[in-house]
Amino acid sequence: MELVCPAGTLPALKAAVDNGADAVYIGFRDGTNARNFPGLNFDEAEARQGIEYAHRAGRMVFLAINTYPSPAQWDKWCAAVDQAAGVGVDALILADPGLMHYCTQKHPRQRLHLSVQGSATNAEAIAFYARQFGVRRVVLPRVLSLAQVRAIIKRVNVEIEVFGFGSLCVMAEGRCTLSSYVTGESPNMSGVCSPAKAVRWEETPTGRQSRLNGVLVDSYGPGEAAGYPTLCKGRFAVQQNTNAAHDAELPHKPYYALEEPASLNVLDILPQLMEAGVVAIKVEGRQRSPAYVAQVTRALRAALDACARDPQNYKPRGDWLAALDKVAEGVTHTLGAYHRPWQ
């Protein structure tokens, strides 16, 4: 299985290559990709440098143009596709069907991957992108169980890449507009979720509060660790259920109604993913530091090598898990949807 690691900067790309990534994925410094954060990402010159660095080490660079351009943005997004093809990326990661069509017409030999934002969660949807645009690899949304991943791989003839580590989207990617409902900006349109400019922290007599465009996302007691107010990771309250018998089941105080802040970590199931025929494991986090990239890449490289050597006796080592937990979001890690009970 390939190890595909994130890079938001040239030092992060080098860290990924130096620590054993088979491929590094990057984006341009604008709204054309789903990690459109201030101070992050690559201009054309940096992309060229990064590609040269990776290719010299025999590694690949993928570039994500995975937001959905509006008519007003269309020309700029097409220019980004041209630019990516021009600098010689090994694969272009796209989500928008219109843009994929453009790419197949203009750059017929460019290798295409379907971004997780493309939201293909089943074999028929994957077949559509393969047939229409010659997509060679699909990144699966983080909503599928291991059994479902296995069933999809049996039915499709494109490569399947899955997320292995990083922050967890609890919603089907590409079909979540929680962020634009609250802030006007979403991953699909603007390449951001719960954007930092809409965040406000407030100290109150009862503790610290986090708000997103005025909406109270969470509040923390004295000494309680506070997390970034991503909408789906806030604590909210449910109302009473008129069905008295079932009302007793409800939490009658604010709780993580959608998702706890936790990191996805698939170290426990690497042999199963390999046996299922997964081609690549992806690490989330282009917005994270070179130190994060180095640490995660090193741990996953060691785990993947151990798994490939002897899958029967593979067991995640304590020091790998400790290294990953240290940089994880929240205090716990989870198998996410791969693990049936989570659903």
């Binding site: 169980s145 919603m171 089907a172 979540c176 507009t177 929680l178 109604a257 998702e259 989570w342 659903q343």
Partner: peptide, 8 residues
């Protein structure tokens, strides 16, 4: 607004 594998 959103769809998940999880039933909320």
């Amino acid at each position: 607004l959103a769809f998940s594998a999880r039933c909320f």
